[in-house]
Design a binder for these strands. Sequence first.
DNA 1: TCCACTATTTTCATGATTGTAAATAGTGGC
DNA 2: GCCACTATTTACAATCATGAAAATAGTGGA
Lengths: 211, 211
Amino acid sequence: MAEKIKRVRRTAEEARRVILDAAERRLADLGPEGIRLQDIAADIGISHPTILHHFESREGLVVALTQRTLEQLRAELFGAFTGPHARDADMHPILDRVFDVLSRQGHARLIGWMILSGAIRQSPEQGLLRDLTDLIHAMRVEESRTRGLPAPERDDTLFIVMLGAVAAFGDGLFGPLVRRAAGVTDETQIAERFRAWFAELLRSRILPSAQ
Amino acid sequence: MAEKIKRVRRTAEEARRVILDAAERRLADLGPEGIRLQDIAADIGISHPTILHHFESREGLVVALTQRTLEQLRAELFGAFTGPHARDADMHPILDRVFDVLSRQGHARLIGWMILSGAIRQSPEQGLLRDLTDLIHAMRVEESRTRGLPAPERDDTLFIVMLGAVAAFGDGLFGPLVRRAAGVTDETQIAERFRAWFAELLRSRILPSAQ
DNA sequence: TCCACTATTTTCATGATTGTAAATAGTGGC
DNA sequence: GCCACTATTTACAATCATGAAAATAGTGGA
């Protein structure tokens, strides 16, 4: 009667990956209360002490998940800004990719949860936006020089980057609510057109002259 | 030895208010895990069954808190957009008030938590941003007519409002993280200057002509 | 093939949290 | 001043999540 239970044995690394994937999925789908050891374990067909074995404690799991998420986000953003369209004046492809990571892939929700629950304490990705600001600012300075215009202030570039960041994160988490409050019926279409509009806005701020 | 414990008796309404205040404070400060009946009760010096008496269940408390928060936010925003500066071309005072409500008063964090935990399901404040969009769009149409320019598209106005909303919410929740990632040292000063810069950006989009 | 290692499971302990029931004590109306 | 009402408390039940301990079973190397 009692079935012979075949246990799946993974490498420690693989097991950690599978567990983190499940935790991430639950967190993105169910929200803050979604991370329960037993539920996560059930999702992937293991017993919950296995999770404790790999992460010491629930807290350890959360820390690991936070670190991995931030690292992935960093890599994604870095990829977006150093990819084939990196130096295009047209920012649509880049911004589309950023928005995609943050909203469709749910990273904005994950980071939001981490901020709210205090999982993010010290500045983890210090420098990413700083480097991006420097990159864009260099483009602007060069542009203004070739056109004989006064150079833009660095803070102006900084603000553009900050706006892009808070708007992208904000859209990922609050976007659906905002669009409902605005009485938008065709959610996805408006969301897409908003991205394009916003990309054009940023472009016009960064390089007013370029077409 | 045993002190005579004097129990404070409030009206039901007052008790609900005090409890919701405490819950709100804990949620804003401690994040998702901050809402525990015993802790909330301890904060205001009552026993936790009193909370259950007034809200039926923990779930009921969360629902009540969600509704009250949304209502407050609606009132605040409505006040900001119908106050003394309502029809100024300069949006600094209005936007300052909006940002203040969302970040300093922690409403962005509250709403963020409610979105993540699924407490917000159906569109609660349907119409607020819709009305705001109509209001601003009317201004723009009038403006363009007096100057003999082509009328702006409504979607353009909608996007401006959406940008203001996601950026304001995003700043309230993700702002500190973004500024750290951008290597900003003087956090509060940059945050304030960003607001002013953003207000000016919105203004120039809404009424390009006005000084 | 045997063995050491460790990923995994089963079983159990503990503590925390929500919720219930009954007793108690302010308060307002008569 | 008495009484009904209900806000509040005390004591307790039930559930549930984290975590510990020990047993079990793959796996890779000698």
